[in-house]
Structures are given as structure tokens and as C-alpha cells.
Design a protein around this nucleic acid. Sequence first.
DNA 1: TGAAATGTTGGGGCG
DNA 2: ACGCCCCAACATTTC
Length: 479
Amino acid sequence: MSSSQNRPAIVWFRDDLRMADHPALHEAAASGRPLICVYILDDETPALHPPGAASRWWLHGALAELRGHLEAQGGTLLTLSGSAEKLLPQLAEQTEAASVHLHHRLHERERTQDDRIRQALGRQGGEVRAHWGTVLLDPDAVRTKQGGFYKVCGSFWKALQTHAVPEPLEVPVSLTFHAVPKTILSGARLNEKDLCPQTPDWAEGFRKTWEPGEAEGQEHLEDFLKDAVAGYPRGRDRVAEEGTSRLSPYLASGAVSPRQVWAALQKHGAHTDGPRIFLSELGWREFARYTLYHLPNLPFENLSPKFSAMHWRKSASDLKAWQRGQTGVPIVDAGMRQLWQTGWMHNRARMIVGSFLTKHLLIDWKAGEAWFRDTLVDADFANNAMNWQWVAGTGIEATPFFRIFNPTRQAEKFDPDGDYIRQWVPELGRLSGKALFEPWAAGEEELRKGGVILGRTYPRPVVDLKEGRDRALQAFRSL
DNA sequence: TGAAATGTTGGGGCG
DNA sequence: ACGCCCCAACATTTC
């Protein structure tokens, strides 16, 4: 065995793919030990929901970018594929690592896996050092007076702000690295090319829209504070405009940390409406993680128990029409196609398509959750489940079930010029006014002039909006 | 982070 | 001048 001071320290990167504000990296560097930086793609533990297709595309770029930062300091990023529970202890054993540094995950299943890894490392004479690095605060630190946890976001967010959020850390200077021989775990190396689609290559729109990585993430944050945050209260709802931060995939992959966002907003001044409302969205993200931590059933079961009696419709064809943006309801199809083509959807559009799936189509939110998890570059276990339960009305702090979005009303309000629909549903591009929002209600002459043949060039609606609404209300009343 | 149905009010046209 | 009706605009309630 090598002398104890030369034993390396492993930094296990997970959903924290960045150099700055990385408490685990920071501590490992401060230990003075040479570092081994590793990422493990674990497809052998399906219970932990491996990344979906869009997230993998993002991951490909994010890993490369992180490796670039490490190489600039003389190191590299080791990427492995397989069961993390097996590979991590093997890596530690074969490199005689003294410690593994990582950030806590939130879900019970993840945490028990980390506990087992901690025990395995302990038996080998190593240790796991864990920090809170993907949230503002330890979810156990925010407690009600009675010692419970908050079930209402507003109360949670107010309580959280009475605590001191740690200042973000700088990138550690002068890192030293341990060279991992090619022979070590040579059979478990991740082929990173496999993260990207081959044939068909569906990522064209992704590449045009996104540049993964820490540097780009920080730029997004700065640009947003400079240009858009002041107009956020109104701009965040206009689906055709760039009124939102588009930080979500950077936050989900950890290119940007919530503490960095928090600190940047404090510095910018969080007293006016724009920054304050934007910060409350960060609060909603934090609340989702907090809820996932305290209620591990969040992704799997309706948090409101009365919905266990709900009989959702099982219509494979309606679900498919929704997934592919072929419902015949323009604002819904626009959102779903934006998702399909770019891996992202405007938040207002997410609410509209979510309401449409769970209410007008009366399909279980879990089908929507699964689709979003596979197709969003910002797919996040906590946010995704929380938001679906919110929109479906099945959550703890959710919309009343009878709050049903009328897609046409929503489009008229938030896409008043129809630009979003025209961009993503180009076959309707020559319609104007009400016909663009509701082609099924337009006159024959108007459709003909717009080059639209319902049922041929664009679908008839899969459900009559009034009938769908009434059906949903009836299902709710019967609960 | 609703929408639709229903109720109320007030101005203006008109006999 | 008056009553009546219509209806838009707004408020309230219901789902």
C-alpha cells in the first residue's frame, strides 16, 4: 500500500457537473490528496431512474465540458458505466483511495444506496464525505415549530429565508490529480458517444438550442439578470418570448448551483418584483427537492389520497397524439413539438399541456411524468413529479381539480399574436385570428385560404374541449 | 399560476 | 319624461 498521504481522494460527480461552488471537490482538494474525478452512468439500477434520452444528450456535452475544465488543471474526468454500488467501491479499492467526496442526493432510494456505498468503503478502510451541494439548504434544517416539515411552499420559503444560505465556493486553485491506469476498470469505461442519438439523429434542434456546460450556464444567469429579470413577472408567461431564464437544464445537471443563483440574485437586488418572483421559482425548485426528501412517494403515488379511487382513462392513441403534438389543439401541439424538437418547453406551455393531458384527456399524470422525464433536457426527478402532481391536482399543495385550463383562453392570453403556434405548428401558419387558436371552429373558406384541411394537413381535436372539461369535472365530483 | 355560469349595474336606443 | 329592453362591463359564485 502506498503511504497514506499519497492515497488519492475520489470526487464522485453526479448531478453537480461543475467546478465552482462544489463543496465535495473543494473538500477533496483541501485534503491535499491527489484527486480522481469520476462520473458513473448507472443503467443497472432502474429503481433510481437513469437519465432519459434528452438528458443523455445533455450529459454528453456536460461531461465533455467538465473534463475540459479538469484537463486545464492537469487532470481528467473518468467516466464509467454500470452499477455505481459495485464500481465505486472497486475504484476506491483498486486505486487505494482514502476517501470519496460527494453531494447528498434527495430520494430515499438514492440515500440508502449511498449508505450501502458508505458501508462498503468503510470495510475497505476508506470513508465517504457528503455535503449538501444541489440544494440551498439541508432539508432537515427547515422545520416547522412542531418539528415537522412544511407542506405549503410559501411557508417553507419564508422559513428557509430565516436561515443563512451558504455563500457559493470558488473553483479550488491548483488541483493535483492521481493518474488512473487504463487497466483499472477497463471493462466498465463509458462509451460517451452512446449518449448521443445515432440513427436517427434527432438532436439537431437540441444542438441549435443548447450548449451544455458550466461556462454557458453562468452566462445564461448573467444574461438573464441583465436583460430579462426586470420584466419577468409578465415575460415569464409569454410563450413566444425569451422572458424566462432557461437555466433549468443547467440547474438539473448541476452546471449552475442553486446557491450561485441565490447569491447572484441577492447581489442584483431581490427587492423588486422581477427578481423576487424569479427567486420564488428557485424556492419552488427547492420545495420540490425538500418534498421528495420528506415524502419519497412523490414520484410514485398521488399525495392526495382521495385520488387513489380515480379511474384515469387508458387511451394509447390519445397519449400518443399528445406526445407527438398531434392533438389538434394548436397551443398544446406547439408546446409538445417544442419539447420534441429542442428538449425543452416554456413553463407556461408545460402547464397548458399538463392540464390538457390530465383533465381534458383524463390520463394519469404519471404518463406525462414519464414522457417529460425522457424528453426534457432539464428532466429532474423532484421537479418533474412535483409539477405533475401540482397540475393534476393530486399533490399536497396543488391546483383544485376543477381548475381546468382552457387551451384556447390560455393561447389568447399568453400567445396573443400566435407567434408560438406559428413557430411550432407551421402548417397553421397562414391562419389568423381565432382560426389559428381554434381551427376546428373556423369556416371552410377561412381554412381553405389558410391552406388547412382538417383531418389531412392538421388533425381534428382528439377531444371536444367542452366535453373533455365536463368529463373531467364529473370524474372529480365522483371522488 | 382558471373558466364558465350567473348576477348586477348602468348607459343608450326607442316607443 | 318615462319605462322598457338590450347588452356590455364588471362582480360574484360555482365548478
